[in-house]
Amino acid sequence: MTDASINTQVQEGEAGFGDFVALLKPRVMSLVVFTAAVGLLAAPVSVHPFLAFCAVLFIALGGGASGALNMWYDSDIDAVMKRTARRPIPSGKVAPQDALALGLALSVLSVVMLGLAANWLAAGLLAFTIFFYAVVYTMWLKRWTPQNIVIGGAAGAFPPMIGWAVATGGISLESVLMFALTFMWTPPHFWALALFMNSDYEKAGVPMLTVTHGRRSTRRHVLAYTLLLAPVAVGIAFTSIGGPVYLTVSVILNLLFIKGAFDILRRDEAVAEADKYRVEKRFFALSLLYLFLHFGAILAEAALKPWGLGGW
């Protein structure tokens, strides 16, 4: 092959390696890695460290694959929204068909490799998670119902359950409660974001609750889901993965979260706009800390157990 055969036509959008990595939503992957690792480490069965590492990696890869499929299908929406307009497809760096191919290839690879590294129940749960996020949430719910993120939140809630299944080969009350914690946390987390990003969703035509039912109703929904979340979160403390450390952390965080939700409810739009949604943004930041510290406390309980300190 001569140098003359190389296509040197200038393509401003030619993707670099980093653009393909961006398709996998690395920030979401980091949450998946963390919650899956906690699910795996909190389980009562130990896994060889290298296999555990591989399993978490393949779970993250599956999450990344579903992210690529989401970006492929949602590129029209992403192009309209300010927050997502610079993503690889709308910015023209990656061709849509390349994103689709990457998403499908990584989906198959991650599921098969997780099955080989761990077990086929974990692999099946990962396959269902990818299907749920890419098809049920992205293709169906997101553009159809304002409850999109409530049901779609299940996709983000599966990783700790998969991590648990990697270790135990099964599903139990603890793994279901870890799923429920993330599932119930998603609505207040995203609706708080939607309160100060409303114009974007409106422009893209996504039926976010703020667009279809208004901000007043969204504020009520944030409080309702925050109140429903609290017993689930605190309830984990009384299972085999909980303990006094978790209970203390959970009670404090839930009191703060409920207070934040009441603060959001009490405000009207004029006040919120006047201080540039300070309370809503603070609640959103707290929600990130809320999930991180809950799973961190589960991990702490598991880490303390060898010294006879974790659990009840």
């Binding site: 140098d3 040197t8 200038v10 393509q11 030619e14 993707a15 670099g16 390696f17 980093g18 393909f20 990595v21």
Partner: peptide, 16 residues
């Protein structure tokens, strides 16, 4: 020939 920006991006992709 002077290396084009395009080649740098392809190199990063191939290396990655």
């Amino acid at each position: 020939r002077e290396e084009h920006e395009l080649h740098k991006r392809r190199w990063s992709r191939n290396l990655g």
